[in-house]
Amino acid sequence: MRRLATPLTMTLLAGGAGPATPTTPLEAAGWHHAEWHGLTPARFRPLPEGGVAVEGRGEGSFVWRRVQGPAECLRWRWRVEAGPPPTDLTRASGDDRALAIAIGFAGWPARVSFWQRSQHAIAQAAAGSHPLPRSALLYVWGGTGREPPHFQSPHMAGLGMVRVLRPATTAHGRWFEEQVNLAADWRAAFGADPPPLQELVVGTDADDTRSRTEAQVEGFRFGPCR
């Protein structure tokens, strides 16, 4: 995955703020499409129930929207018709995936270093008026399935924790329902109680394997865990 040189500008959470007046179907649906430096963007379109579909071949980009509220549980459903083969998501090079759902939080981890704050500041300068989250959880459809249950994103200076929910070998053409406990995952990743939610991001990345990607995700619901 080729990205900018600074760790936090290599994440799913970079990009400029969307326009005040919607000009595309994605923006009318509340999503903003953003690109990674040096990558041809994938093609996103809105779906009912606040979802998105993505298509591409060897491409990568992401869409994001603002969210607010406490960290509770997040539910959604997703399916992949085509995606990259298994890649090692713990490495910064070659970590392609069909889909990644990222939740950005407004606060820092319980223990954050001066270096991490500095990397965040550099990324914020690149992002302009779009306030970047200070920590994130990422849930992925991709990878080998042999990654640790939770591991640091190799692109986020220790401010992003990854979970592989569906490895790349998961059956294509089927819907899968997901539920994740954001509060529990944030505590496990960063310690202390989680800060408020800030962003929901959906991304795809297939530039290293030059793979075809076709996937959908919809039905996002934040609420109490049950």
Rank of each mutant, 00 (worst) to 15 (best):
G107D: 00
L132N: 09
G94P: 11
G56T: 00
S113C: 08
S153A: 13
G128E: 09
T87F: 14
F105Y: 14
P84F: 04
I103L: 15
R66N: 09
G50T: 01
L138H: 05
G143E: 13
G83T: 00
A98C: 10
S113R: 03
S135A: 12
A136I: 04
I101P: 02
L74W: 09
W78N: 12
W78Q: 15
S153R: 10
Q152R: 14
W141C: 12
L137K: 02
R57I: 05
L74M: 15
V140K: 02
A71I: 00
Q124E: 11
M161Y: 06
V162L: 13
V80F: 10
D95A: 14
Y139G: 04
L99D: 14
T90Q: 12
T90K: 03
G50K: 02
L165I: 12
A157Q: 11
L99A: 14
Q119I: 04
G143D: 05
H155Q: 13
E55W: 06
W141E: 07
F105G: 00
R134Q: 09
A53Y: 06
L165N: 00
R66P: 10
P70A: 09
R65G: 06
R66T: 14
M156W: 14
P154L: 06
E147S: 14
A136R: 00
Q124W: 13
A136H: 01
A126P: 02
G50L: 11
D96N: 03
P148A: 07
I101H: 01
W115Y: 13
W78Y: 13
V80M: 11
H155C: 11
G58K: 01
V112N: 02
L99S: 05
